[in-house]
Design a protein around this nucleic acid. Sequence first.
RNA 1: GGAGGGUUCGCCUAGUGGCCGAUGGCGGUGGUCUUGAAAACCACUAAGGCAGCGAUGUCUUCAAGGGUUCGAAUCCCUUACCCUCCGCCA
Length: 423
Amino acid sequence: MIDLRLLREDPETVRASQRLRGDSVDSVDDLLRADEARRSAVASFEALRGEQKQLGKLMPKATGDEKTALLARTKDLAAEVKAAEAAVNEAEQALRTAQFAIANVVQDGAPGGGEDDYVVLREVGDRPVFDNPRDHLALGELLGAIDTERGAKVSGARFYYMTGVGALLQLGLLQMGLWQSVEAGFTPMIPPVLVKPESMEGTGFLGSHAAEVYHLPADDLYLVGTSEVPLAAYHKDEILNLAAGPQRYAGWSSCFRREAGSYGKDTRGIIRVHQFDKVEMFSYCDPAEAAEEHLRLLAWEEEMLGKLELAYRVIDVAAGDLGSSAARKFDCEAWLPTQNRYMEVTSTSNCTTFQARRLNTRFRDADGRTQTAATLNGTLATTRMLVALLEQHQQPDGSVRVPKALQPFVGGRDVLEPAKAGS
RNA sequence: GGAGGGUUCGCCUAGUGGCCGAUGGCGGUGGUCUUGAAAACCACUAAGGCAGCGAUGUCUUCAAGGGUUCGAAUCCCUUACCCUCCGCCA
């Protein structure tokens, strides 16, 4: 939800942002009009309501003719107040609709354009070269780590079992991420993965993402696609104390995505699935500090990828591909040898005050005033990283090397060997 | 699933139609006192919208929505959530 004060004071910035995203510029003017309309509706309601209260005070003392006259006037007034109130509600509704039509103002420096207009900030690590690389699924099956066939049998396409060392590997990876965050001062969290409509809505996932979200109609609950949802809603309607700096959470959860509209894309293996696990960083901070905090989240993501000894690159996502809440987004993409391409493994967004405004999450600034907080999120560890891990660390015999930092989290194993017999 | 009880300003609590934006306590902040602290005492102590350079003014908010009334925290209806008991299942 966009800041109306900014809009009034500097509509041109908002227009420029809309242009950069390839979104409608007219909707900025629609919002300006709706804002004006609401304010005038409120003013007339308040004038009437004020009069009503004044006259109401006289009532108990009034007697006789005086009282009769007063009653006549207040009776009319009651109807007028009611009509004015209805007008305010209507204007507020219209304002909200217009407000939701505008995405967050893009941060200075973010590239314009759409999905393919990202800017590569850096490439890190040496991309491994193989003669005949096995893809992650072939490796996973060889190791007895991934079973997509039975996943499909039991639950359908895009479901899978992590088996044996696969299960250990996934848990180890997530734990490694979680511990890194704990050492950095994050509060680890295991949030609910079923949330109420208002929580889903508040975090902005029922907008353009609505088709992506699983809904349980019997209970009117939603399955979260990321723990960003319960972590963002955690402090809904609260005033935080951020005097000591950003408040950071690391949420471990399963994530559920319908993957509607992605038919035929990444159908092999576990790259694009309906359910996976993730440790997500989430930070509440002073908006003045948000851009810096964003770089810190990115640095933590890169620290993880470094410890996993993965070759990756960092991209600055273009405005048109940001999603409505983000003002800036950096993705880390790991190299996928068998596909000769990079694949997104982490994504960190600076939502500035956009998300927190809708959720009414504020903090008290140095002057003691309440201000909307900024929220940021970023991926620390996720099932999908295993895809890159298996492929990049594979050896000719089908075994997979375990990076040193991960070894303590998988029972000290340094190499995962192919299973003796298939089953 | 059945039967009751509840939801008030950070927490607890008073409040059964106008004097209630709302009592009191706790907590918090500032001050007096003290070598320092504690105690005691005093003061302040919700959020938001709008107007104004500002002091300030004004309106909204007593779970949410609707109704009764000139006037609602207070009366009526609906919904949500919480609690207790019973049943059922782990």
